[in-house]
Computed example of a mutant assay.
Amino acid sequence: MLHRGTRRELTADAALAAGLTAATCFWGDVTFPYHDSHLATLLTSLPLTVPVVLRRKQPLIMLAVATVGGLLQCVVLEAPSPSLIAVPIITYSVARWVPGRDSRLALLAGFIGAIVGPYRWSHTADPWIATPNPHNVFYLLFLICAAMVLVPYQIGRRTRENDEAELERELAAEAQYEAQLAAQAERARSIEARTRNEIARELHDVVAHSLSVITVQAQGGKALAAKNPDAAAQVLDTIADTSREALVEMRRIVGVLREGPAEYRPQPTLCDIPAMTERAGERVHLEVTGTAPIVPPTLGLAAYRICQEAVTNFLKHAGDQATCWMRLDYEPDRIVIDVTDDGAGAAVVDDGAGNGLRGMSERAAAMGGTARAGPRPEGGFGVHAELPLAQADR
């Protein structure tokens, strides 16, 4: 691809061509008092100097016109013209702006001229050049002309190679920068998706569990209202407490989403599991083995939410007459959670979402543990989760 040049560069090339033309094509007998026609000198010099204006825009056309003018000059003139000073500029320009092997046309044209011109001038009768030994003159002029072609060509090619290498470095840096931007955008999307999933899990756990507890307590309170008003009032208190806690959790989550001040409430921990199961009703039984360890908040929240979702799943699907047993084993290296019931099990009609069970697995996996849930062979439903303590420490 040719370099078209900016307006400023094209103006500079026009000025260079005009300067070369003015300096070399109208010297007359003052500088070179040989007997060639001034008109012939002018007509053969102009094709060498004027096309320099095209050295960036159309360097091959410049080379073609200059080659014709140079060969004509070798035939017509008996001595070299000052306009030959344009040859190094032309050669450099072709080497600099023409890509690939096409730039070698400058070498071909230059070396043809380096042979034809010195041969013509070494056999001239002009007193400025004539010598008893024309071969020595030919060799000298050939070396001078060849150097005027070869040296500018090498400089032009080296300059082009340096520019291409710099361009490749810039393109590589730009590609690396774009890759970094893409990676940052991908990380941002991943973080955003993970945050949405976490918020969705929190909303599901809070809303589903609270509504399930409220529903179960309301159904029990309705039956107790006529038989034991005091017990019914206690059930209403449980419903009110559960609703209040759910509202606080909802305000906290919505406050985070709005990036505004959220009502502060500590995240649930292992110590909150007994109160959660107690609010779920008398059909949920808790057995704890060992002492609750001191764990990071993330692990405590994960264990609490897994137990909460297991109880919620029991309240929603097991049936009114089913019973739930929760067992917490605090072992030295892990927390084991087992939640079983004697409800409908495989016969339950799923709601089609499965967000709660999937959320349990995701929470456990995030802590380096596992969680499995499904109908039991002997009937009912079971949840088994293991959360390693060592993974949480890291």
Score class of each variant (00 low, 15 high):
348 V>P: 04
21 T>Y: 03
219 Q>S: 13
365 A>W: 05
257 L>P: 06
334 R>G: 05
340 T>K: 09
347 A>V: 00
106 A>R: 01
44 T>K: 02
237 D>H: 12
334 R>N: 08
364 A>Q: 06
356 G>C: 10
265 R>F: 02
96 R>T: 03
353 A>G: 11
376 R>I: 03
35 H>R: 11
106 A>M: 02
1 M>W: 08
380 G>I: 01
231 A>R: 15
342 D>F: 07
152 P>N: 00
330 Y>V: 06
321 Q>D: 15
213 V>A: 09
356 G>R: 04
155 I>M: 10
16 L>N: 07
209 H>S: 13
366 A>M: 11
253 I>D: 07
117 G>Y: 00
269 T>A: 14
184 Q>C: 06
212 S>P: 08
32 F>T: 01
164 E>R: 08
63 L>I: 02
251 R>G: 00
160 R>A: 08
157 R>W: 01
65 V>R: 00
56 R>V: 02
88 P>E: 00
196 R>P: 00
202 E>R: 15
176 Q>R: 14
394 R>Q: 12
166 E>I: 10
19 G>Q: 03
143 L>M: 13
2 L>C: 06
136 N>L: 13
230 D>T: 14
216 V>H: 15
131 T>R: 08
333 D>E: 11
224 L>K: 12
383 V>K: 01
91 T>N: 08
181 L>D: 05
375 P>S: 08
353 A>P: 05
282 E>Y: 09
175 A>D: 10
56 R>L: 01
230 D>V: 14
187 R>F: 12
261 P>L: 07
244 R>S: 08
239 I>M: 10
96 R>W: 06
223 A>V: 10
228 N>T: 12
14 A>S: 11
196 R>Q: 10
386 E>P: 08
124 T>L: 06
179 A>T: 05
270 L>W: 04
170 E>K: 10
218 A>T: 15
105 L>R: 04
308 Q>G: 12
8 R>G: 13
119 Y>H: 03
272 D>S: 10
359 G>W: 11
100 G>W: 06
193 A>T: 14
298 T>N: 09
247 L>S: 07
352 G>C: 11
7 R>M: 13
194 R>G: 13
319 G>P: 13
383 V>R: 00
43 L>I: 08
21 T>I: 01
197 N>R: 11
204 H>W: 07
283 R>T: 13
175 A>I: 05
84 L>Q: 02
305 R>C: 10
184 Q>I: 05
118 P>Q: 00
169 R>C: 09
182 A>W: 14
11 T>W: 15
1 M>T: 07
379 G>Y: 07
227 K>G: 01
92 Y>K: 03
313 N>F: 12
230 D>R: 13
273 I>W: 05
146 A>C: 07
179 A>C: 05
325 W>N: 09
339 V>D: 02
389 L>G: 01
